[in-house]
Deep mutational scan, measured.
Amino acid sequence: SFNTVDEWLEAIKMGQYKESFANAGFTSFDVVSQMMMEDILRVGVTLAGHQKKILNSIQVMRAQMN
């Protein structure tokens, strides 16, 4: 498990989005775990492969939080 959203993004090789997530207010796992595709688009993730990777990881995160 990760301590910060930045660490999580690095771990899934999506570190290039750290600033975008932070600027959009997605700075805690409570918020990130609620993200939908529209949120991912809003933070500027436009590549389908990256969207899928982030969404898949969020689903895993949700499962671990319950």
Rank of each mutant, 00 (worst) to 15 (best):
D39I: 03
S28G: 07
F2I: 08
A24F: 13
F29H: 03
F21C: 02
G25K: 05
N66Y: 03
K13V: 07
M65G: 08
Q16F: 07
V43N: 01
A11D: 11
D30H: 14
K13N: 15
F26T: 02
M37P: 10
D30K: 15
F29D: 00
K18D: 02
V31E: 10
K13Y: 13
A11G: 13
K13S: 15
V60Q: 14
K18Y: 05
F21M: 04
F29M: 11
F29S: 02
A48F: 09
S28A: 07
M36I: 13
M35N: 00
S28L: 04
R42A: 13
V60M: 13
V32C: 04
N56I: 11
A24R: 06
K53S: 09
A22M: 11
I40E: 00
N3W: 11
F21R: 00
K52P: 01
G15S: 11
K13W: 09
F26Y: 15
Q59L: 15
V45M: 03
I40N: 00
Q51A: 13
V43T: 06
R62V: 09
E19P: 06
A11S: 15
A11T: 10
W8A: 00
L9K: 00
R62W: 07
K18S: 11
T46R: 10
K18L: 05
Y17T: 01
L9A: 01
E7M: 07
F21W: 04
E7P: 02
H50E: 06
T4P: 06
M36N: 15
V31I: 14
Q34T: 13
G25Q: 05
L47V: 13
N23H: 11
Q64I: 12
M35Y: 00
V60G: 08
Q59V: 09
L47I: 15
D6N: 11
E7H: 07
S57G: 09
Q34G: 10
I54Y: 01
Q64N: 12
L41P: 02
T4F: 07
V5T: 04
H50N: 04
S57T: 04
Q51H: 04
F29R: 04
I12D: 02
A48N: 10
V60N: 09
Q51P: 03
L9I: 03
T4C: 09
N3M: 12
M61E: 03
Q34E: 10
A11L: 07
K53E: 12
A24H: 14
T46Q: 10
D6S: 13
L47P: 06
A22R: 15
L47F: 10
N3Q: 14
S33T: 11
K53M: 15
G15N: 06
T27V: 10
K53C: 11
E10K: 06
G44Q: 03
G49E: 15
T27M: 07
S33E: 06
Y17R: 02
Q51I: 13
H50Q: 04
F21Y: 02
M36T: 15
I54R: 00
A48R: 12
G15L: 05
R42M: 10
A63L: 12
S57I: 05
T27R: 11
I58A: 03
W8D: 00
S20E: 08
F29K: 03
E7V: 05
N3P: 08
G49F: 12
D30W: 13
K52E: 14
K13G: 15
M65C: 08
F21E: 00
E10V: 09
Q16W: 05
L47M: 10
E7N: 07
V31N: 08
Q64E: 12
Q16Y: 06
F2Q: 06
W8H: 01
T27D: 08
T46E: 08
L9S: 01
R42H: 10
T27L: 08
F2N: 06
W8E: 00
S28T: 15
S1D: 12
Q51N: 04
Q34N: 12
M37G: 05
S57H: 11
G15K: 05
E10C: 07
D39R: 02
E38H: 10
M35Q: 01
N66M: 06
A11Y: 14
F29N: 02
M36G: 15
A11R: 09
R62L: 12
N3F: 10
A11P: 00
L9E: 01
E38Q: 10
Q59A: 13
M65L: 11
L41R: 12
M35T: 01
H50Y: 03
T27S: 08
E19M: 14
N56P: 00
F29Y: 04
A48P: 15
E7L: 07
A48Y: 13
K13D: 14
H50G: 02
A63M: 11
N56G: 09
M37W: 10
I40M: 09
V31F: 08
K52W: 12
S1I: 13
L47Q: 12
I54A: 01
M14H: 02
N66H: 11
S57Y: 11
A63R: 10
D6Y: 08
F26E: 01
Q64W: 08
F29G: 02
S57K: 05
E38M: 09
I58T: 04
M35K: 02
R42Q: 09
S28W: 04
R42L: 09
V5L: 04
N3L: 10
Q64V: 09
K53V: 15
K52C: 13
K18G: 05
N66R: 09
A22L: 10
G15T: 07
R42E: 08
H50L: 04
E38I: 10
G25F: 04
M14P: 01
A22I: 08
F29L: 14
D39P: 02
M65S: 07
E7Y: 05
N66P: 08
V45H: 00
K52V: 13
N56L: 13
G15R: 05
M35P: 00
D39W: 04
I58Y: 01
W8T: 00
Q59D: 10
